[in-house]
Design a protein around this nucleic acid. Structure first.
Lengths: 343, 343
DNA sequence: TTGAAAGCGGTACCAT
DNA sequence: ATGGTACCGCTTTCAA
């Protein structure tokens, strides 16, 4: 059932029916009621494509996910974030279109999105410190919002981020409180913005206590198990090996932990491992790793907020960019009771 | 730049330009070349919405994800599956639109999709044994493919599934080989099709060895940590408590494992835990739980295949439904070297 | 081989 | 308050 048929059925013009359905004031209440009823009855929904073509609004928002091994965006956090965003979208009547794109095709993917005009805005994930995608989108003029920030980009844009610096500062503080002085930072690649910020937090904590920063204990790489594993093997051979590891991703933390358990090198040494990830709290009680983490629900919340932020921006043209900084929750060690049932 | 402008620029009609770009045979090679060049130069991309409206094809496929606590679809596997599907889509020129929908709104969501005509087909996740969504889509006539199967629905439809029955049969066999006779099945809700099949595999293994099936050792519920935790507490109080747990989800397995470690009840008893999940292999070396699992790459592969299957079906109307059954990989225990670097 | 024109299903301006 | 109609950008039939 389309508008024309519905209008014919009612003996009205398309114009009137359209107006009635879209809440225009110049329609008599009686007519509106009649139209609404008929529409409900026939389960009428305007054809999205036609509407989009006529209005110039696609009523859809794109998420472009880099499909490379480097970012590992498709990790557990992703599901929760997306599901939060999805909530905002469906409330506001937007569709969410997902593009999984290989790294090299990133920029062409954006151009394509803009040229094909099938989204009204874009959410950008896992920004680098000077992310070319941001500059690109600014030039293109397509509304966008970033999950994270790009330190080296100074022109304003909308973003939402967790406070990675403070999170890692607190984590480091925690280890210092335990008496550790040789703390190894197993970080992600530091062109990723979050990784850079995390290192700054780590350094700030050490500096505040007058502990020297040892470059031999600083690592930055793609976060895999092997990376974590090898880093432990290597650092434990140092003359003055670390007694604690602060790991930037739970995946790498698994490698770290396994190396510690296996290694004859660390026999008898008391080593702490602490890790952070945007969300892996459901592992908190299963993996023997103290996890410093945002809870699942707060990741959802982040998705919800970021999406809302973008929608606001799309719908109020000319509005200034919006930003929001969330504090990460800190949870250390294993809980004692059963984990709360997440509903 | 749109078609009209491009045509004007070339001094040709829209018709000719359109034909040249879409590979119609009746265009002179010379013209085609000229057009193609101009198009490239101006970075022309046809407006998706206009094209969709004109052709009746949306060039998009919908994934409807139930947003309830019950299914927990948004789990780690999801990312890999989606990313595999995304690959197929982008190769075939389709967009992927994600709908996160509350349980109660499921059926209206489907109706809406069909009425709004913004997708050419749908992928259905986490089917129940007699899933009403399948019947609904069949009635509506929108092409779809199911990730999983619905045992009680006999009319043919397209699906792709892992062989849950054989997977659990093999897992149970493994435990029987270890000498266990009291094996507790910590299953998911058995209206979910996969859970039902898993139980059948478990039962088949026991029966084959003449081990009696004890209803006291059969559990089916939403897979949370608490559920796993409580199940252990409860079963360890039995006169003849289980010596092994076969757990249908790694999340529940965490609860199981923790209960075992904490409980004074099980002190000194040697208990095996084995778990299955569509994919959590990256935990394999981190969580002390032997994991029976499909690897991440095979989950991606499943996504890729299912998407391809749906595309084929959409593009060859009248074709019979396609199906595919994948065997799960079995990996038990912890690996000895560092985990292979996943690239 | 090329072009004119009629849709696709809506919206929105201009009349009445 | 209601209707006629041009238009959004593309495909496709029909004619030349």
């Amino acid at each position: 059932m389309n508008l024309k048929q519905l209008a014919a059925h009612l003996g009205l013009s398309q114009t009137t029916v359209s107006r009635a359905l879209n809440g225009y004031p110049e329609v008599s209440e009686e007519t509106r009621k009649r139209v609404q009823q008929a529409a409900d009855q026939h389960n009428y929904r305007p054809n999205t494509r036609a509407k989009a073509l006529a209005t110039g609004r696609a009523m859809a928002i794109g998420h472009v996910i880099p499909l490379s091994s480097r970012h590992e965006m498709m990790n557990p956090i992703f599901g929760d974030f997306i599901s939060g965003a999805g909530e905002s979208y469906s409330n506001a009547g937007y569709d969410m279109v997902l593009s999984l794109v290989a790294d090299k095709e990133q920029s062409s993917a954006y151009h394509e999105m803009v040229a094909k005009r099938n989204v009204d805005g874009i959410v950008l994930h896992a920004p680098e410190m000077r992310d070319p995608r941001i500059t690109l989108l600014q030039k293109i003029g397509l509304p966008f919002a970033v999950h994270g920030r790009a330190t080296e980009i100074t022109t304003p844009y909308s973003w939402l981020d967790v406070n990675n610096r403070s999170a890692f500062q607190r984590a480091t503080d925690f280890l210092l409180d335990l008496g550790h002085r040789r703390i190894c930072l197993v970080n992600g690649q530091e062109n990723m913005d979050f990784a850079f910020r995390r290192r700054r937090g780590y350094e700030a904590a050490l500096t505040a206590r007058g502990v020297e920063i040892d470059p031999q204990l600083l690592f930055a790489d793609e976060m895999t198990e092997v990376y974590g594993y090898e880093t432990v093997r290597r650092t434990q051979r140092l003359d003055d090996p670390p007694t604690a590891y602060l790991v930037s991703s739970i995946i790498a933390a698994f490698g770290v932990r396994r190396a510690i358990e296996e290694s004859e090198l660390v026999m008898g040494r008391d080593i702490s491992v602490i890790t952070h990830d945007d969300d892996l709290s459901y592992l908190r009680n299963g993996a023997d790793v103290p996890v410093f983490t945002a809870t699942r629900s707060s990741v959802r919340e982040a998705g919800r907020k970021l999406a809302q932020l973008l929608i606001t921006q799309i719908e109020t043209p000319g509005s200034p960019p919006l930003t929001e900084l969330l504090e990460a929750e800190l949870t250390v060690g294993r809980s004692t009771g059963p984990a709360p049932n997440r509903t």
